[in-house]
Design a protein around this nucleic acid. Sequence first.
DNA 1: GTTTGAATATCGTTC
DNA 2: GAACGATGTTCAAAC
Lengths: 239, 239
Amino acid sequence: METYAYLESPEPQEAARFVNTYKRRGIVVVYGLCEVSYEGRAAARLEPMYRLIIIKRDGTLLVHESEKREPRIWNPPPSSNVALVIDGTLVIKSVRSRPLETVIVRIPIVSFAAFFPASSAPYRVHGTEKDMVRFLASNVGLIEEGATLVGVEVPTAVGSVDLLLRGMGGELIVVEVKRDLAGPEAVHQLKRYVEFFASKGEKVRGVLASPDISASAYKYLKEYGLEYRRLSPKQVFTA
Amino acid sequence: METYAYLESPEPQEAARFVNTYKRRGIVVVYGLCEVSYEGRAAARLEPMYRLIIIKRDGTLLVHESEKREPRIWNPPPSSNVALVIDGTLVIKSVRSRPLETVIVRIPIVSFAAFFPASSAPYRVHGTEKDMVRFLASNVGLIEEGATLVGVEVPTAVGSVDLLLRGMGGELIVVEVKRDLAGPEAVHQLKRYVEFFASKGEKVRGVLASPDISASAYKYLKEYGLEYRRLSPKQVFTA
DNA sequence: GTTTGAATATCGTTC
DNA sequence: GAACGATGTTCAAAC
């Protein structure tokens, strides 16, 4: 396997060649004093400061400061990143085509540059909303004793219903699932589905299933005559 | 200013000391063969592979692969990150308290470890939704000829209205602003506000202002008797 | 290619 | 500290 490589305090020309050589092979890291400008969907500008710049082989560009999970400036893949020397300073230019977004990193002092071979692999996260829906589809009793499954991700004119059941009284039960604290938006979403089926002349109830619900969301829920079932992703994950 | 530091193929003990020494001072980068597990709001596990691990002084932990803007595994600030040696291998353990989330990175082969002094500074992005709202508040004519400003970010029982105007006919005009393509959710949001004021006995119209609108969103808009004004952040940014 | 909605969303602001 | 909504959201699945 190819090994890593690095340069200490390289000349701009040398640094540019290094970046261009390795940028398509793995992860390139550049550390130095830089000023950054971004223009695209919005615009921003960062004053000169020492930062960490990361270039990935798929065209990702990240400019990280010493705090926060998020890069301060970035270009998502697929972007076109090129290193060049302008007026004796290293410049990394990143262009995303659609939408057109440009990031320009001027690095008057390049302290360190490194290349790290790395790869990427498929993975899976457990405990997503999809997992919860799947679980509930096989355990509809958790929502309503004696109910039967009508469908999962059922498309309607006002959006896709997470779970659709039929209760013992013959009524439709629309279920909206959230994997986290449910807010007002979730209740309004559920209300739309219920109103849709009601307008079709169906007898229908609405149930919100989530690990928790905010006070204001609960107020709406009651106001609209909807129901709540507490259910956490943990229950799903361990099932 | 403190300078950078690095280790090549360090012993686990040495690497652990390095990480713990520098983790609160700036950005620490570790490159090596690692397997990663995460458990918290959800759960995931990454098989052994060469990856880039980043630790920031605010407790951020990022595990990056060679593609995508997003880290594969992470813990956001403020988390508590500690390096230790278990059974002769470097382990970085990250714990976030609320909610409780744990990331464990086992690194049997540490190829490279580096510390980069860096800082963090306030910054500003231009062309946000807030910018658009501010601009429209000073140029209500772009929404409705002859209208007057009633308020900005006006709180209601169903949420906060971006912009509230009064038309020449004495009617209220509720304006929902989006800085990007408006989808169905934006239309439903607007509809809620309009219904709220209508229920108060107000004569009211609803206007959605955005650079573009999806086909299905437009269908809802028309169906609900709402209006559309095309307006891009660029117009704001250059104003 | 476009649209749609989830996300371990993260993050700032407000209450 | 909780909650609410924007984000240059990003991302993947559905169409």
